[in-house]
Amino acid sequence: MTHYSTVIFDLDGTLLDTLEDLHLTLNHTLAALGMPTRTLAETRAFVGNGIRRLIERAVPAGTDEATVAKANAEFDTHYAVHCNDHTRPYPGVPELLARLRGRGVRLAVVSNKTQYAVDELVGIHFEGAFDAVVGVRPGVARKPARDMVDVAIAEMGGVACGPSVYVGDSEVDVATAAAAELPCLSVSWGFRTPEQLAETGAATICATADELERALDGTKGTKGDGFVWHPGTKGDGFVWHP
């Protein structure tokens, strides 16, 4: 039995490896506006707070708001066509979601991606897997505010069905879980390293889908991929031991 009856997932870097498509669209946008392009490593560091913030971080310092808005529109136009060119689920994720659904666990996605992109990618890769799919919407504060989590829980019928947990891959997700007053399980296969996650206060860091499933089950795991179950430090969980 899964310890949690509701699991709320981040999307980019947690369920789907979207980095290459984000990077290619970002560089298309920058080149279209005559701006210097960015490396894959820079793009990885910039993501997590939504497309607008990604663009604000990527454009040259001092870029005016009108140009940022133009870049945002160009990004959206290109990404709508190319959001799934290279995007794929992380290993073991589809199978994990299927097992959780088979146990009757409520599942949701909460993403700082624009709603159209969240809907499209979830529909392509995880059709029918989620009870709520929440992207950026007018009037709803984006993560790390708790508002999108609250919307997801409301769309699933509220909190009456039991304990909830938040799963993500970045410092934004750690902060979102804290704001929503939920436990957080962090994954290290996404856009942040284990060390970066630990520095932001992640207490449970899972290296594989199997480790994440054990953490969701509330059972102690075994050594794997540099992570060991280490009870009693920063919260019982998988922690990094280089």
Rank of each mutant, 00 (worst) to 15 (best):
F9L: 03
R99F: 13
C206M: 06
G92C: 06
V93S: 03
G104Q: 07
G104Y: 07
P89D: 04
A179G: 05
I55V: 11
A160C: 13
G50C: 05
G139H: 06
F9E: 01
R44G: 05
S170V: 01
I153M: 11
P138W: 07
Y116E: 11
L185K: 01
T18F: 01
P89H: 07
H241L: 14
G157Q: 09
L216Y: 04
G224D: 15
D150V: 10
A141N: 11
R57G: 02
A66Q: 13
A141G: 09
T63I: 09
A32Q: 11
R57K: 13
D21C: 08
V68P: 00
A58S: 14
T43M: 04
H23F: 07
E171M: 11
V165S: 00
V47M: 09
V134Y: 00
L182V: 01
G190A: 07
E42D: 13
H78T: 07
G235P: 01
R146L: 08
T39Y: 05
T39K: 10
E155C: 05
H23I: 08
A152T: 06
V140N: 08
A202Y: 01
R38M: 08
A203H: 12
N27K: 13
R57E: 03
D17W: 03
G224H: 14
T29V: 06
G13K: 02
A198Q: 14
T37C: 10
D76Y: 14
G92Q: 03
F75M: 08
D76K: 14
G232C: 06
V136Y: 00
V93E: 00
Q115I: 00
D10N: 07
G62P: 05
F191D: 01
T77Q: 15
L33N: 10
F126R: 01
V151T: 04
G221I: 05
G158S: 10
T233I: 12
P94K: 09
G226C: 07
L19P: 02
T29M: 11
N72K: 12
S188K: 04
W189F: 13
M148S: 11
A203W: 12
A98N: 09
P163G: 09
T43A: 08
V105D: 03
C184T: 09
K70W: 07
E195P: 08
P60M: 10
F238N: 00
D64F: 11
E155R: 14
K113A: 00
M1K: 15
F75V: 03
H78S: 08
V167D: 05
P60G: 06
Y90E: 02
A179I: 05
R52A: 14
Q196D: 11
R53I: 14
T176R: 01
T200A: 15
A132C: 09
T67Y: 04
F9R: 00
H28E: 10
L19I: 15
S188F: 04
V165F: 03
E74N: 15
N84W: 13
D236H: 10
E181N: 15
G168K: 02
A61L: 13
H3A: 13
R88E: 14
M1A: 14
G190T: 00
A178Q: 10
P91T: 08
L24A: 15
I8V: 12
N84F: 13
R146Y: 06
